[in-house]
Design a protein around this nucleic acid. Structure first.
Lengths: 184, 184
DNA sequence: ATTATTATATGATCTAAATCATATTGGAGA
DNA sequence: TCTCCAATATGATTTAGATCATATAATAAT
């Protein structure tokens, strides 16, 4: 969404495995992912890591930090990434001065709200198989079972087991090791 | 947030138990709750009902429908409510023309995103007691255990049991029948 | 005032996912 | 090529929450 708008930003490269920002740091910037893959993750008190969001799309992230003093999660480069770093002030000014931008920004956030509602909904499904099916129907992809298990809130063992059952019952197709898709 | 802005809206009363809109209906309006209490709920395939959101605050709801053709949940009056009904067009125009409104609307949505991330996070906590504690720390209130169980994704039986343990271990205080608060 | 209904509450049992264990596979890197 | 390591995969066991059942208290309805 930032494509159509001129910005004062600086480009930055981050190597795979490195962090773009960490939970608790002062939140001064919003980011635009240009290439690669990033993951937003949060550490739970019991050591579990929750994947808040993950994308390799050209999209912004950490917009929720606009009105927050610090980041509430880690942003990690899952692959080598190129990002654009935009100061919070720049965006707030643009929302005020550029109506078209304001609308598209509101749209972005409204869609995020819906997407979180969907994820919340699937997290309430008790059966592992049903939960995995629901996640796939929502468009959550399985490129790695361990990653996926973090996204749906199941152990990876439960995911492996359920996936193999779903494959047997022909509801899911196994593309290759660790990679699955909805059947049909 | 709509208080400071002049709007063309119509006021409407809805009796307890009635619906303001239903899942699947054409989404033409955003709403502002003036008084009473509303609940947004979604029906899961297994019959479970997920409470998406619930509030008696003076706040807007169904903003996510701004860019959606139909509502994705039911809006139910938990108590008798007074609401203001605002057409989607009105709001979109206002975002374009009123920079101050645009910023506060973005803020509203950004906070909602954070709030859903928080709820998603607690829904991934496996221990019922820890989950309930986390929910209380997030400010989710227990005015009714059955309501609360829907909000945190546990059965009401599990909630009753965990709450009584938490009261015994002095981490939670029972105010009265069905009403609990964090200790301290 | 009496009945009906719903929320609260707790006990007994079941079950499915978590946990723990172990084996295998495939890829990264020396 | 060989070694190492992380991801995949599945088996055995445990356990906590779901489910089913029942009782009681509070509220609403008549």
């Amino acid at each position: 969404m930032f494509n159509n708008h001129s910005f004062e930003f600086r480009s930055q490269s981050v190597s795979k495995g490195d962090y773009i920002f960490r939970q608790g740091e002062a939140a001064n910037y919003v980011f635009m992912l240009i290439s690669g893959k990033i993951r937003l993750e949060r550490h739970l008190s019991d050591g579990q890591i929750l994947i808040i969001h993950q994308t390799s799309q050209q999209e912004s992230f950490a917009e929720a930090a606009l009105f927050s003093d610090f980041y509430h999660c880690d942003a990690k480069a899952v692959k080598d990434v190129k990002i654009e770093v935009i100061s919070k002030n720049t965006i707030l000014t643009k929302i005020s001065n550029d109506p078209e931008f304001a609308i598209s920004f509101v749209e972005l956030l409204a869609k995020q709200v819906q997407s979180y509602r969907n994820r919340l909904q699937i997290s309430f499904i008790r059966s592992a198989e049903e939960r995995i099916l629901a996640a796939l129907k929502l468009g959550i992809e399985i490129e790695s079972v361990i990653e996926f298990s973090g996204a749906v809130g199941l152990t990876h063992e439960a995911c492996y087991r359920s996936l193999s059952k779903l494959v047997k019952s022909k509801q899911v197709v196994k593309i290759r090791r660790g990679k699955y898709r909805l059947a049909g």
